[in-house]
Simulated assay, not measured.
Amino acid sequence: MLLIFGTTLRNRILTVVRFVCEYCRTDASQQVTENATKVSVFFIPLFTVSRRYSVACSNCGGVTALTKEQATSGMQWAERNRPVTN
């Protein structure tokens, strides 16, 4: 029996926030992302084996690792500070 299995990396943008980048010192958009490694069989993802969070500067591309709590806090902050549109 031939069983094809492996892992895949799924990247998901959780939110976009705007603040001063620690690398380039520019006030720029920052993407908060979740990177999940999933085990798959026959190219169908079954379960997640790890999750990592990071923030990436849209100006210089600098990436900083985040904890899950920091990513969640960033999402909550972005939701509270979203501009009101009519």
Rank of each mutant, 00 (worst) to 15 (best):
S50W: 05
Q30G: 02
S54Q: 08
K38Y: 14
Y53A: 00
L66D: 04
V49F: 02
R52I: 11
F42R: 06
A36D: 03
C60D: 00
E22Q: 13
L46K: 02
V39T: 08
T33A: 10
L46R: 01
T37Y: 05
A56V: 15
I13Y: 08
E69K: 06
S73C: 09
D27Q: 09
F42A: 10
A65G: 12
C57D: 03
T37P: 05
V17H: 06
R25F: 15
Y53R: 03
R51L: 05
L66A: 03
V55R: 03
I13P: 10
M75F: 08
S54Y: 10
L66F: 07
T64I: 15
R18H: 11
R12F: 14
T48G: 00
Y23T: 13
T8P: 10
L46F: 08
T7Y: 15
S50F: 05
C57P: 04
R18G: 10
M75P: 06
I44F: 10
F5V: 08
V63E: 08
R51Q: 01
V41K: 04
S50V: 07
F43I: 10
G62V: 07
V63R: 04
T15I: 07
V32N: 00
I44A: 05
I13H: 07
N59P: 12
Y53V: 03
F43E: 07
D27G: 08
C60V: 08
Q31E: 15
S54R: 07
N35V: 15
Q70P: 06
